[in-house]
Amino acid sequence: MSLEYFFPAAFPALALAHFVALLSPGQDFFLISANAVRHGLAGSRFICLGVALGNGFYIAIAILGWSGIRDNPQLFSIIETLGAIYLLWIGLQLIRSKPGGLVSAESVGQAPGAGRQLVLGFNSALLNPKNALFYMSLMTVILGADVTLLQQAFSGLWMFLAVLLWDLLVARAIGQQRVRALLGQRIHLFERGAGAVLMAFGIGLFLQSGR
């Protein structure tokens, strides 16, 4: 049984386009970074899982062929508005960050719990309707109409794992003790910067949803 039974001929183009998109920092990147720099991998790994699950939700929608979000301007606008409010809320929390030291191994319990991390990451990905359009475009434009359901499923699984592993790699790199030690008592400045970027994303969504 050849690999084309599981992966379509256009899979390399799909994987490349998806990975290039991952390299572009978005709202999920800044959310993960802000938590990783304060709490390390322990305080951000479930955010990564939540983000991957949110992406997986839209991948599933693209595979099932649901175009209701894309074709319903009012629903799309509502999701954009909710996403904007969510980003503004998270950004505000980060901008209000106060000076403080690193979370040590002994005090790791101060980091957000797994459930809270999961909700933060999932909501961040889910309330970004551009994710829905992105995956619909990838699955329809690149893979084409001749792709089988099994090929779509394996391509979707690949993209889900790519998001998860890439975000975990980012969180691990930023959460290294050496990186965090370089910031020292200036971690709150990093968090405030990340908060400002997230709020900028939120304002951008507000402007788009108001059109």
Rank of each mutant, 00 (worst) to 15 (best):
F76H: 12
W158Q: 05
V197C: 05
L183S: 06
Y86A: 01
V103Y: 12
A62I: 05
G83C: 05
L183F: 15
I79F: 14
W166C: 01
P112Q: 10
W89A: 08
P8S: 09
A173G: 03
H18K: 08
A62S: 12
A36I: 06
L207N: 06
L53N: 04
R116Q: 10
Q152F: 07
I63H: 11
G156P: 00
G43D: 02
G91D: 08
N131A: 09
Q152H: 12
S107G: 00
S33T: 11
S124G: 01
A17Y: 13
S155R: 04
P25V: 04
P8I: 07
Q151L: 03
Q152D: 04
F206Q: 04
G109N: 10
L157W: 14
I32A: 09
I203F: 15
Q152S: 06
A17S: 07
L102P: 03
Q110L: 09
S2W: 15
L207C: 03
F7V: 02
L118D: 08
A105G: 02
S24V: 10
F201T: 01
I95V: 11
L92R: 13
N123I: 05
A62K: 00
G91K: 01
P73R: 11
L207H: 08
I63F: 12
S124P: 00
Q208V: 05
L161I: 12
A162K: 06
A62M: 07
W89K: 02
L143F: 13
G40Y: 08
W166M: 03
I78H: 10
L150M: 13
A194I: 06
Q208D: 09
G144Y: 14
V119F: 14
G68E: 15
G68C: 06
L14V: 09
I79G: 00
W158L: 10
P12V: 07
N35W: 11
A173T: 09
M1H: 12
A194N: 08
P73H: 13
S24R: 11
T81Y: 15
G54T: 03
L164Y: 15
S124R: 05
L94I: 05
A125P: 00
R96V: 02
W158D: 06
R96F: 12
A171L: 06
I187P: 00
R70C: 01
A13W: 15
L157T: 07
L207W: 15
V51Q: 02
Y58L: 05
S124N: 13
A125Y: 07
S137D: 12
V51F: 05
S97W: 15
N128S: 08
T81G: 04
Y5A: 05
Q185N: 10
F19Q: 04
R211H: 09
S137P: 02
A200T: 11
L3A: 12
P25C: 03
V37K: 03
H18V: 02
A153R: 10
L207K: 10
F76T: 01
R192E: 09
